[in-house]
Simulated assay, not measured.
Amino acid sequence: MQLTLDQATGLCRMAALGAGANEEAAQSLTASIIAAEAEGLSTVGLSHFIDYLEALEAGRIDGNADPVITRPALAVYLSDARGGLAHTGFDRTIDDLVKAAKLFGVSIFSQKNAYTCGALGYFTGRLAEQGLVSFAATNGPAVLAGSGSVKPVYCTNPMSFASP
Rank of each mutant, 00 (worst) to 15 (best):
M1P: 14
Q7Y: 11
A8P: 15
L11A: 07
R13H: 14
M14L: 15
M14D: 15
A15V: 00
L17G: 15
G20T: 05
A21N: 04
N22P: 04
E24M: 00
A26Y: 00
L29I: 06
T30C: 03
A31R: 13
S32F: 02
A36H: 02
A38S: 14
E39K: 12
G40V: 08
T43N: 10
T43K: 11
V44A: 05
V44R: 06
L46H: 12
H48I: 01
D51M: 04
L53H: 09
E54H: 12
A55P: 06
E57P: 08
A58F: 00
A58T: 12
R60T: 13
G63E: 00
N64W: 07
V68T: 12
I69K: 04
T70M: 08
L74H: 13
A75S: 15
V76R: 06
S79Y: 01
S79Q: 02
A81Q: 09
G83V: 02
G84V: 03
L85Q: 05
L85M: 06
L85H: 10
T88A: 14
F90E: 03
F90Q: 07
D91Q: 14
D91K: 11
R92P: 06
T93N: 10
D96A: 15
K99M: 10
A100C: 11
A101N: 05
L103M: 08
F104M: 13
V106L: 15
V106R: 10
S107Q: 03
I108K: 08
S110D: 06
Q111N: 08
K112S: 11
N113C: 07
T116W: 08
C117F: 13
G125N: 07
L127Q: 06
Q130R: 15
V133I: 15
S134M: 02
F135E: 08
A136D: 07
G140Q: 12
V143E: 11
V143G: 11
G148V: 13
P152K: 01
N157K: 01
S163Y: 13
P164Q: 09
